[in-house]
Design a binder for these strands. Structure first.
Ligand SMILES: NC(=O)c1ccc[n+]([C@@H]2O[C@H](COP(=O)([O-])OP(=O)(O)OC[C@H]3O[C@@H](n4cnc5c(N)ncnc54)[C@H](O)[C@@H]3O)[C@@H](O)[C@H]2O)c1
Ligand SMILES: NC(=O)c1ccc[n+]([C@@H]2O[C@H](COP(=O)([O-])OP(=O)(O)OC[C@H]3O[C@@H](n4cnc5c(N)ncnc54)[C@H](O)[C@@H]3O)[C@@H](O)[C@H]2O)c1
Lengths: 229, 229
DNA sequence: CCGAGTTCGTGAATGTGTGCACAAGCGCGT
DNA sequence: ACGCGCTTGTGCACACATTCACGAACTCGG
């Protein structure tokens, strides 16, 4: 219990752990154990993958029985660093920034909105999701006083790099970028990008392939990203 | 020109093509050629990767010169199926659904919002981004009359499977899911999921690792998803 | 206490993605 | 016409991810 092997966890596994965690958290309270196969079904993946993923955290299952849900939740949360909350600051209080700030799902999963900033005087002072919109000049102060290490960029593309620079300058070390722009940041800052138009374009690609049945295989079901009944 | 090799394109490449396309589209008009290295820099990836990605589309570059931007844009658009628009229907006109409908970036990139539906009488009839919100009962009619093949699920998690079933029943074959739920759909329907809380949790994981310097390597810069200066 | 049935943990095989390194091809200047 | 410098396209080696298959370890009933 006290020792932590702290082995390296593959990135692909890290990307699935939050999904397992969500599913486990939503399970009925009277279900105290779950098998890799049950969890796999709920997550839409292969059972062997679930076992391998969980094995990176340690040997927390019991053969012939499965995994104890409460304990597994605890272990996954610990591994993901969710033993404490990670306050988040949102830059840009437009359509998307407001939707994000209003979204209860963030605080529920350990990411309270510690601040929202904008440059538009019309937006500053308004309250969204219980948080008052501040001027972007106050960003650094907010980040430092609230010990924020994660920033969300929800500005127009032209302002995204500026926003990122501000965040990095204030000490933020992780950025979630919604603007369709490639951000330049120091190597020790993590950036993840969510581009909704890209998602649609990927769907469009497969959609198009579907309608022009290739000479070889008629339907190459893309098992990678698609969940099936 | 008339022949189309129609080779299989790796999924990883498909996921990068939209980004290349966006960058190419935003280039100065007076730049008529671009090298793989320049494009790689702009996209924050390796030049060899750009060349390999583009080589799946065909040999559209010229050695010693680079790629002709206009022609490359055309080819990438063709490959992604963007020779025509893909109308999209949004289910759920809440915070997120409204932000999406208001977002000009979709229609700009070939995905006009053909309809928005909801169950809430208070929302039905209002106009968002130039589109009137309809009752969810009209979904099938809308999908058929506007030839929609892509649906966006922006309902609360509890209603997401219902929304997906409705979409599939109406003939939609690609779904972009924003609800934190695993959707069950027939095997021939593509689903992509965007879970913003998952993105934050992944950042949180790396954030935590950062603060507990592992015994082995102090900072394992995650090159996979992070763009760096 | 034993055997049947269950489920985990993981080695090994296979599949997919990345990046180096270099030959082949092109343009340009002389 | 030719050589030189530049850039593409790709073979190859390596890294990473997925899946299978099976031994190990557990439960339970008799
Ligand atoms: N709305 C969507 O559904 C959607 C979908 C995909 C991507 N996006 C992207 O998300 C970003 C935000 O989209 P949106 O629809 O909310 O745009 P928006 O125009 O509604 O909001 C942008 C906000 O950023 C503020 N801003 C501008 N410059 C700033 C700066 N330097 N510092 C701080 N704030 C600044 C503006 O005042 C505005 O309030 C854009 O990059 C957009 O491309 C939005
Ligand atoms: N708002 C965000 O920033 C955000 C971020 C991440 C994920 N999400 C997810 O996106 C989804 C939507 O979030 P939101 O903030 O817009 O929620 P919301 O509650 O503001 O909006 C949901 C809308 O869906 C409608 N709806 C409910 N049942 C429906 C049905 N059966 N058919 C059609 N419409 C129905 C509701 O009337 C409401 O208008 C949720 O699943 C949420 O978890 C939202």
């Amino acid at each position: 219990m006290s020792d932590r092997p702290r082995r390296r966890i593959p990135e692909a596994t890290v990307e699935r752990l939050p999904e397992y965690l969500r599913i486990l958290s939503e399970l009925d309270d009277d279900l105290d154990h779950i098998s890799s196969e049950q969890l796999a079904d709920l997550a839409g993946v292969n059972a062997a993958k679930v076992r391998k993923d969980l094995s990176y955290l340690g040997s927390y299952g019991t053969r012939g029985v499965g995994y104890e849900v409460a304990y597994l939740v605890f272990q996954v949360r610990r591994e993901l660093g969710l033993t404490h909350d990670w306050p988040v600051i949102i830059v840009g209080a437009g359509n998307l920034g407001q939707a994000l700030a209003n979204y209860a799902g963030f605080v529920d999963r350990g990411f309270p909105v510690a601040g929202i900033v904008d440059v538009d005087p019309a937006k500053i002072g308004s309250v969204i999701g219980g948080v008052r919109v501040r001027h972007v000049d106050e960003l650094a102060t907010l980040v430092r006083s609230r010990k924020v290490s994660i920033g969300v960029v929800a500005t127009p593309p032209g302002a995204a790099q500026d926003a990122a620079d501000l965040l990095v300058g204030a000490g933020v070390t992780s950025i979630l970028n919604f603007a369709p722009t490639v951000l330049s940041v120091p190597r020790d800052v993590s950036v993840r990008k969510v581009d909704l138009a890209v998602e649609l374009q990927i769907l469009g690609f497969h959609e198009q392939r579907r309608s022009v049945p290739s000479l070889s295989i008629v339907l190459d079901a893309d098992s990678s990203r698609t969940a099936s009944a």
